[in-house]
């Protein structure tokens, strides 16, 4: 079995999939870090210009000013009604930071590494996983090599299981790459420290109020681990669903296409049809697990961490069941 997994990993590496993922990560993270540095400086400059102090000396004043700005926006008659709950949650969060002496404007490699994953978890990370998983079975069907591996003295389920195991292992590597590249690249802009700075987590959004009773402060590195742990969970789910599609369709481009449109479509749905109840059972809508940690406002009302994790787990288990049953029974006609 180990040798079978080794075979699969070997094939993925030789197809240069990991290299592609590495390239995409490097380019995107660099652009992201540069952009963040830029916009942070502008925010600081803007706020500092208005109240006449520098950010580094007194971040508390900046924070207070930000709260005032947000409150003004809340009371403005021109604001969109549906944006207001999110703004309210944001204000309360800033207030919490202020009371507990945590600087939200501070940036560091540690913070960037975490934030990058928080921003990628619902679309960018899944896309990378699809690049890896999309052709893992359909690729063999498309070039005919499936006949080669299914006519050995090895049962079909073992062949499929080794592919799945290889995929789950490579997902860890993708996350490690993302973490290392983020830390390395963003350190150039923000300095390499910040791993022990406190981060508040445990916010709960109830209706449009923020509940801060359960909030605890954890060091940044621990928070980053939690975020990457959730990201791995998301990778497993997206990976297995993508794996299933790869088993069901016979061409790599169809497999990747189906998954990409599902993901992007799902993100649309969660924005524009949040009152349509059934969308909350789609896996794409439940990928923003890290938002629960940070206490951001949820666009679809009434879902929480437990709900999302349950939905995602059900999807993963169902996808695996379908993959194995179909693969075991399928006639290979290619």
């Amino acid at each position: 079995m180990l040798r079978l997994i080794e075979n699969e990993v070997f094939k993925i590496i030789f197809k240069k999939r990991l290299l592609i993922v590495f390239g995409i990560l490097l380019v995107l993270i660099t652009a992201f870090a540069y952009g963040q540095d830029n916009s942070l400086n502008r925010t600081k400059a803007r706020l500092a210009g208005r109240i006449g102090i520098t950010a580094s000396t007194d971040w508390k004043k900046l924070c207070e000013q930000q709260i005032i700005d947000l409150k003004n926006r809340l009371e403005s008659p021109y604001g969109h009604e549906e944006d207001k709950p999110a703004t309210r949650v944001r204000i309360e969060q800033l207030q919490y930071y202020l009371e507990n002496n945590i600087n939200p404007l501070d940036s560091s490699a540690a913070k960037f590494t975490t934030q990058f994953m928080e921003q990628s978890i619902f679309l960018f990370l899944p896309l990378l996983i699809i690049i890896l998983a999309g052709d893992i079975v359909s690729g063999e069907a498309a070039n005919g090599t499936i006949k080669l591996i299914l006519t050995r003295n090895i049962p079909r389920w073992k062949v499929l299981l080794s592919k799945l195991a290889a995929l789950l292992m490579l997902e860890i590597i993708v996350l490690l790459m993302a973490a290392v590249i983020s830390a390395a690249v963003s350190g150039v802009f923000f300095g390499y420290g910040g791993w022990t700075a406190p981060v508040a987590t445990g916010f709960r959004v109830i209706g449009d109020r923020l509940e801060t009773l359960g909030v605890v402060n954890v060091p940044q590195w621990q928070y980053a681990l939690m975020v990457y742990g959730l990201a791995y969970f998301v990778s497993i789910v997206v990976g297995t669903v993508s794996f299933m599609i790869s088993v069901l369709v016979k061409s790599t481009s169809a497999s990747i296409g189906v998954m990409m449109s599902a993901l992007i479509g799902g993100n649309f749905l969660s924005h524009f049809m949040s009152d349509w109840k059934i969308t909350r059972y789609l896996f794409m809508v439940n990928l923003r697990l890290t938002d629960y940690l940070a206490g951001s406002f949820q666009p679809v009302a009434g879902i929480n961490m437990a709900f999302s994790v349950t939905v995602l787990s059900v999807w993963a288990v169902a996808a695996l069941a379908i993959s194995f049953v179909y693969f075991m029974r399928q006639d290979i006609l290619v």
Partner: peptide, 12 residues
């Protein structure tokens, strides 16, 4: 066996 044309991994 060889089933139809002998398909192998071309990138290896």
């Amino acid at each position: 066996c060889i089933i139809e044309s002998p398909e192998m991994y071309k990138f290896l």
